[in-house]
C-alpha cells in the first residue's frame, strides 16, 4: 500500500466459534463496518468508486478457525493504536477478537508475500491417536504425497510432501488426538482440507457424519534466520508502543520472542508444544462455549 499519506496499520485477530462459517470476504466487510461504527476513518483509494485501503493476509478457509489472522489497512488520521483492539473487538461479531495492533513500518511487505509459514492444528473425527501416528509416520516417510485437487476450476495433481515442515500428533487434555503441523506458504500454500483428505486416504477412513476441524495457531515471517510474529516483524519504529494485554485477555506475545532467537517450536519437545496449544485451545473452547 504505497504512495499515499494514510497511516498503515496491522491488526491481529481471532476467528473462533460460529463465526468460522463466515467467508474471508465477508470478514473483510465486517471489518469495514467495524471501522465505520467506531468512526475510525479509513483511507480510501481514489477514482470513481473509492474503496477503503485494506489488505488481508492468507485466506482462511470457510469453516476453519484461527487464533492469528492479520489484516493491513491505512487509516486517514492517526488514532490511539493501543485502543484499537478493544474498540474494534466491540464492533465485530463474537469470535472475532482483535488481539493486537501496531503501526506498520513504511514499505512493509504485504502480508500475503511476507508470511512464510503457518502452524495448524487438525482434529480428525473418529481417528484415534495410534492410527494417526501410523498415518503420520507413513506421510513423513513418503517421498511424495500426490493429491488431485481443483485450482481455478481445473483438476490438477499436486504434491503435498514439500509443503509441510513438521507433522506430529499429540493428545489433548480430554485424550483426543490433535495433529500439529507447520506448513510453508510458498511456492504454493497447502490447503488444510487437502491435507485432511490425504491423511484420511492414508488411514483408509472416509469422513462420516462428523466434521474434521482446522485451527490456525500461528503465522510466521522468517527474516535472517529468525522467525517473527507479523506484528513484531514490521512494527513501525517511530512511537512504537508495546502491545500489552488486549480487550479479551489474549496477550500479544504468547512466546518469548525477545532477542530475535530462533523461535521455531521444537516438536520433539512435546511438553512445550502441548502447553502452548493447550492455552490456545482453552481460549478457543471458551469462545465457542
Amino acid at each position: 500500500m504505497k504512495g499515499s499519506d494514510g497511516i498503515p496499520v496491522r491488526v491481529r485477530f481471532t476467528k473462533l466459534g460460529k463465526v468460522r462459517f463466515v467467508s474471508h470476504r465477508d470478514v473483510a466487510r465486517a471489518f469495514e463496518r467495524a471501522f465505520r461504527i467506531e468512526q475510525l476513518p479509513m483511507a480510501f483509494t481514489l477514482g470513481f468508486s473509492p474503496r477503503p485501503k485494506v489488505s488481508f493476509g492468507l485466506a482462511l478457509g470457510t469453516g476453519h478457525e484461527s487464533l492469528t489472522e492479520y489484516l493491513d489497512l491505512e487509516l486517514a488520521e492517526s488514532v490511539e493504536i493501543d485502543e484499537l483492539p478493544a474498540r474494534l473487538s466491540a464492533a465485530l461479531p463474537e469470535g472475532i477478537d482483535v488481539s493486537g495492533a501496531c503501526e506498520l513500518a513504511d514499505r512493509a511487505v504485504s502480508l500475503q508475500e511476507a508470511v512464510d509459514t503457518v502452524e495448524l492444528q487438525l482434529r480428525l473425527v473418529d481417528l484415534d491417536s495410534a492410527t494417526l501416528k501410523g498415518v503420520i509416520e507413513r506421510a513423513l516417510a513418503a517421498e511424495s504425497l500426490p493429491i488431485t485437487t481443483t485450482r481455478k476450476g481445473r483438476n490438477v495433481v499436486e504434491d503435498l510432501r514439500p509443503a509441510f515442515r513438521s507433522l506430529v500428533v499429540h493428545v489433548d487434555d480430554d485424550g483426543a488426538p490433535v495433529v500439529h503441523t507447520e506448513v510453508n506458504t510458498r511456492p504454493r500454500g497447502l490447503r488444510p482440507a487437502d491435507l485432511l483428505l490425504k491423511l484420511r486416504e492414508l488411514a483408509d477412513r472416509e469422513l462420516g457424519a462428523g466434521e474434521d476441524r482446522v485451527l490456525r495457531t500461528h503465522q510466521w515471517i522468517e527474516r535472517d534466520g529468525a522467525r517473527l510474529e507479523p506484528l513484531e516483524a514490521d512494527r513501525a519504529t517511530r512511537n512504537a508502543t508495546p502491545l500489552r494485554v488486549t480487550s479479551k485477555g489474549l496477550t500479544d506475545d504468547r512466546r518469548d520472542n525477545s532477542g530475535g532467537q530462533d523461535l521455531r517450536p521444537d516438536f520433539t519437545d512435546v511438553e512445550h508444544a502441548d502447553a502452548d496449544f493447550a492455552a490456545a485451545e482453552s481460549t478457543a473452547a471458551r469462545r465457542i462455549a
Partner: peptide, 10 residues
C-alpha cells in the same frame, strides 16, 4: 453459504 444459519448479526 453456511453463515446464513449462524445468526450473530449485529
Amino acid at each position: 453459504k453456511p453463515a446464513r444459519y449462524i445468526g450473530m448479526e449485529r
